[in-house]
């Protein structure tokens, strides 16, 4: 039998799939927050993406 220890110790949670949440995917739920984030991101150079 496979050990469940890796699963128990994983930081990646078990996520229940709920198709009813699909309807929010293309909505902008927090427009002011997004606008603020976009302002911060637009005006600064992003760090270089580090490889795997």
């Amino acid at each position: 039998m496979k050990s469940v220890e890796p699963l128990k110790n994983s930081k990646v949670p078990i996520v229940q799939i709920d198709p009813s949440l699909e309807k929010y995917r293309n909505e902008t739920l927090f427009p002011k927050k997004l606008a603020k984030a976009n302002e911060h991101l637009k005006t600064a150079k992003l760090p270089d993406r580090k490889g795997k």
Partner: peptide, 19 residues
């Protein structure tokens, strides 16, 4: 981080979560 967490629900692309 061994702290209690709530159960997460999401749609299949893991962009929207609910708890």
């Amino acid at each position: 981080m061994k702290i209690d967490k709530y159960l997460l629900k999401s749609e299949c692309s893991f962009i929207i979560f609910e708890f």
